[in-house]
């Protein structure tokens, strides 16, 4: 079976203050997978996503989305940053944050109208947050804020979704709700890439995995490569015991 390649990363090196945080990464993400990026803190997981999305400038290497540069393919890609990366005291409502997902397709200057509002309301409904649409975002719980971020990505109606730790600080119900939506996206043929921390849930949630620790350790189907050998290579300690416990 030959799958189309959704995201291709070639020889990517990214440095902060001349210290490489990602080193010579080659990565192919096939279309239609639900992929976890795992690795210890400081492994460059968020950096990898940000570099693919052109938020950070790599010092070497290239990225292509369906064969073309990210700048040409923006409309195919949606991004969910880490929840902690924004100021939730910002004066705005849940609906308004979701509407921001439509800004990309509008381009500069043009304002969102009824069509965009309708799409945002639908996305809010999908994540079960419609009744909170007028709520000020600081009045939402951590799980609700994460759902709002997910709704904002859904409204972009993209082909590829990048999510930076969507399960951080959310309760169990929200985690299940989010993973169900991600699985639905995969069923619809979308590609979903998630920075993930909880190794225990990888086999249950994902079908594809990338091990990362500054260098790429391994990438492939969970059933083939999610094993003690790769975990040990990535985390530097023997994982055999902890996983089986």
């Amino acid at each position: 079976m030959t799958q189309k390649i959704a995201v291709q990363v070639d020889d990517l090196t990214v440095a902060y203050n001349y210290k490489p945080v990602l080193w010579d990464i080659d990565l192919e993400i096939p279309e239609g997978v639900l992929m976890a990026i795992v690795g210890p803190n400081g492994a460059g997981k968020s950096t990898l996503i940000k570099s693919i999305l052109g938020i950070l400038n790599p010092i070497a290497g290239s990225v292509s989305i369906y064969g073309k540069s990210y700048e040409k393919q923006r409309s195919l890609v949606a991004y969910v940053p880490q929840k902690g990366s924004v100021d939730w005291d910002f004066p705005t409502t849940a609906l308004d944050v979701v509407m921001m997902g439509t800004y990309g397709s509008l381009g500069w200057i043009k304002r969102p109208g009824q069509k965009e509002k309708k799409a945002a309301l639908e996305a809010l409904e999908k994540v079960g947050m419609l009744s909170f649409k007028s709520r000020q975002i600081s009045q939402l719980s951590g799980g609700q804020q994460q759902r709002i971020f997910l709704a904002r990505a859904l409204v972009q109606n993209a082909s590829i979704y990048f999510m930076d730790e969507p399960f951080q600080g959310v309760d169990a119900t929200t985690e299940i709700a989010i993973i169900n939506i991600l699985k639905e996206l995969r069923k619809a043929g979308k590609t979903v890439v998630v920075v993930h921390h909880d190794l225990q849930t990888v086999p249950e949630y994902f079908d594809w995995v990338t091990f990362l620790n500054v260098k790429k350790i391994a990438t492939g189907p969970v059933k083939d490569i999610f094993n003690d050998d790769n975990l040990t290579k990535t985390y530097g300690i023997n994982y055999k015991v902890s996983i089986q416990e």
Partner: peptide
Amino acid sequence: FDAGLSAS
């Protein structure tokens, strides 16, 4: 509100 999203 969200410089990361804005850039993407």
